[in-house]
Design a protein around this nucleic acid. Structure first.
Lengths: 238, 238
DNA sequence: ATCTCCTTATAGGTCCGACCACTTCTGCTA
DNA sequence: TAGCAGAAGTGGTCGGACCTATAAGGAGAT
């Protein structure tokens, strides 16, 4: 009566499952729910509740008609999990941008250290595409929805930086901040931002870690200045 | 057959619930599960699954025997939610410490800006306690487990900094890194770290934001140097 | 012999109704 | 009036039924 809800059967099942998952290699197939429930001494309903929680964390993948498998998701797959946690939680745009400002230079340096030639080419192409769009206004988009989903520059940078908690955090911040960045910037500011991001890409493509971090910091600082004057306030909630 | 599992009934229920939760003020009590299930056209089992997911995100609080309430958790309550997400995900100690290095100076500045006199006193007391323990080795702990749970210095700093995504991230990193910091430091290094943290506390207590950030950065840099030489490698997994 | 299609076993997904456990409120009792 | 038992209502657990999706295996056609 004094302790918290530690006695709940589902907690017990969840913990037992979590232990099993931690000690099992990637791809391991769990026993069927009915059998596993009996082994743990709980009903299938309760077991399914526990499984659902671990599945929501990405530690289990449940495949209807097939089975349940142990997963060890990388940091990048953490973004969709973090997103609902941060959304609608009184998180201001300023906080998200401050996170960007603090962490993204490090991500740029990591990208510079790992960038392959193909990735460098893709990033340069993405920047050039943005520049074209900025100049030519609205050029006809032949991308009839089956093109490989035009990846943004910051996504390419994240790819080059590799699997990392820092990269995941920056990606999350970028996703949440992006809709607010589009509006609220004057054409001149967008022009400047474009060139500064181009400098970032060049430094990354050249493999110069310090230069990449510095260029990113420069870009973020000027962007922060533009946003501060633009009175761009609000929360990241939808 | 092409789309993902969007047709699953529980998804539908979860979305309906999520919509309701977003548009409901804090503290709102949900209708009983049986009634709500009927209203949404799903079984109670399925409804409970959806509720469980939102509860895991902290958006709902389920109280056995009472009811289910809408919650709008602050950023600080995000730590226990993030923890299982980051644990056991190939997250290296270096990444966590890099996160600290990047973000914690900002947190120190925020703390300096908001610190009350009571909080300053508590922080100074905590530092002094650490200093006493460091000098006097193991002094008798009269804290017979009912003392107010000796809060660590970084916890007090987080309190002073207030509710923020950045603070939550740093708190999480601190929790995960802490067990590795205790061991692996020589007495001389611990001595230096203690004094540098003391300087951080003084700056925060004095309300000097820049000085607090600088002092924290200094502390983290020297700590990083000590760890790099100490060959302190490994993952944050348990 | 190999490929295709269909059957079938088996897995997870949903539903139902019952009962258990906890909280709250109510009204009785001392 | 203070305290306590009971009733009502809520979430928690259970077992079993049925639906749906996947994969494996076998019959048939090529």
């Amino acid at each position: 009566m004094s302790e918290a809800g530690v006695n709940r059967v589902v907690e017990q099942a969840r913990d037992a499952l979590a232990t099993f998952v931690k000690n099992a290699p990637e791809g391991t197939k769990l026993p069927p729910e009915r059998q596993l429930a009996q082994r743990l001494g709980v009903s299938r309903t309760t077991l399914r509740d526990g499984v659902s929680r671990l599945a929501q964390l990405g530690l289990l993948e449940v495949r209807h008609g097939d089975g349940t498998y142990v997963r060890s998701p990388g940091a990048s797959q953490l973004v969709p999990l973090l997103r609902p946690l941060v959304e609608g939680r009184h998180t201001t745009l300023e906080e998200l941008f401050e996170l960007k400002r603090r962490v993204e230079p490090a991500v740029a340096a990591m990208a510079a250290g790992n960038c392959t030639d193909a990735q460098a080419t893709a990033m340069r192409a993405a920047i050039q595409r943005e520049r074209d769009e900025f100049n030519g206004a609205a050029l006809p988009r032949r991308t009839s929805r089956k093109s490989p989903q035009r990846r943004q520059v910051h996504e390419l940078i994240a790819d080059a930086a590799g699997e990392s908690l820092l990269v995941a955090l920056v990606s999350l911040a970028n996703e949440l901040v992006a809709p607010y960045l589009a509006k609220g910037l004057s054409p001149a500011q967008r022009r400047l931002a474009l060139e500064q991001r181009s400098a970032v890409v060049e430094a990354i493509a050249a493999g110069e870690e310090e230069a990449a971090a510095d260029a990113m910091e420069l870009y973020l600082n000027s962007l922060a200045r533009a946003l501060k004057n633009g009175a761009l306030h609000g929360t990241a909630a939808d």
